[in-house]
Design a protein around this nucleic acid. Sequence first.
RNA 1: GAGGGCGUAGCUCAGUAGGUUAGAGCGACAGUUUGUGGAUCUGUAGGUCGUGGGUUCGAGACCCAUCGUUCUCCCCA
Length: 455
Amino acid sequence: MSKPSLPQGTRDFNAATVQKRQYIFQTIKSVFELYGFQALETPAMENLETLMGKYGEEGDKLIFKILNNGLDLPQKKQQTLEGVEKLFAGKSSTELTERALRYDLTIPFARYIAMHHGSLTFPFKRYQIQPVWRADRPQKGRYREFYQCDADVVGSDSLLNEVDLMSVYLTAFGNLKLPVEVKMNNRKILLGLAQFCGGEEKLIDLTIAIDKLDKIGWEKVKEELNTKGFSDAQQKIIQQYLNITGSNEEKIAQLKKLLGDNASVLKGIEELNYVLQYHPSSGMSKQLVADFTLARGLNYYTGLIFEVKALNTDMGSIGGGGRYNDLTSLFGVPNIPGVGISFGVDRIYDVMEEKNLFPPSIEQTTQVLFFNLGEEEAQAAYAQMDLLRNKKIACEIYPEKSKFDKQFKYAEKKGIPNVIIIGTEELGKKECKLKNINTGIQTTILFNELVNYKF
RNA sequence: GAGGGCGUAGCUCAGUAGGUUAGAGCGACAGUUUGUGGAUCUGUAGGUCGUGGGUUCGAGACCCAUCGUUCUCCCCA
């Protein structure tokens, strides 16, 4: 038998890891609920049709597809072979696969809205904390199965939603004690730039090239723009655009100077300003950074876009989101605008681990271990344990009669702070010995007093 | 999809220029100690050196392939 192993990019989580992850989930979830979002869960798998074509060409390739059952049935052989043919022709094949694992939470949410818009009350605010799967090559901070925590508002155009979501970000990361900055830009500004550089149809090429700036540098971006057919004059404008620096106010002033006669850019700036300046007293403005080089890969965004970066680490973005005018029209239900944000829990975990930000208090375990010193003694111990458990004190009894050594070591390894010893001596006197593992202090307590002991 | 690093005991790793019986630390288990843990000491178990080929008198080491893993690029959380 070969050694058991895990599929690439997936992980097991031990007790300590689960507790830390739960701490992140809980923190985010309670902020979501504080802001009026309600939970939604959707299936791990969706119809392939629901997902395909929503994430761009690259994204489609990374969708985990589920092979149909019964492909090996003799009567289906012809159909299966046709499916394979289609596959090699570069088309998707419903003969072979009709379902896929969800790639993110936003598209399944849009599908949900499209299916239930008749019975939902708008504006509809939902949050969703579930795993997603991507057939990506794993590397640092990148897994094939990872959790997303999304909060979205649909059915409202108001920028107050953006303000609220930025507050959710800052509150949640504040509660996690994780220093971050939220970069903001507006697709309308990028659209304006594209219009300035030869047309809206170049928006996607433009955003993809711009997005790479901080990674590959201007020279490489320039090369890419060249191959995509941007003229020298256009490249010059793009370079000026990317060179904008300074405080939020200074950046916006420079942008106005450069592209201020474009209506889309002006609109974009206005929206950006609205959110940046909504309540200056909160200190929000400090962590919100206008960044015109932010582009984001997903093309369904149409308004403000956000990306969260943890400070002082080389981890990529740990969250992102933006406004989309018309996501549900992909599913035949137009005119439901929305805006959403997402937390990348696995990366947040990695950063917090790296920076040692988990409070020690979240590691909780059994409070009391009862020693097992024989059948009769164990029975007495079990009765005492019942009483403590009724008081919501986490207890366990060592399941077999063993040497002290072994039972002590068990408690120590598991981090159980208290052991209770009931042997023949104690049994006779109806008392027990309570020993604190950390301090080494041992006290004697009568059975009928144990329930009221403060652990 | 492209490119690099690494696979030796449960874990972390050594293994010199290919040479006879593959090592250490930690951990596990047992004893020292039939009712008081963390320490010490002693002992024990555990490896077809990722897999398959090849070169060689001889391969853990060199070559090829393959699988796994990790990192970078693309893309993304």
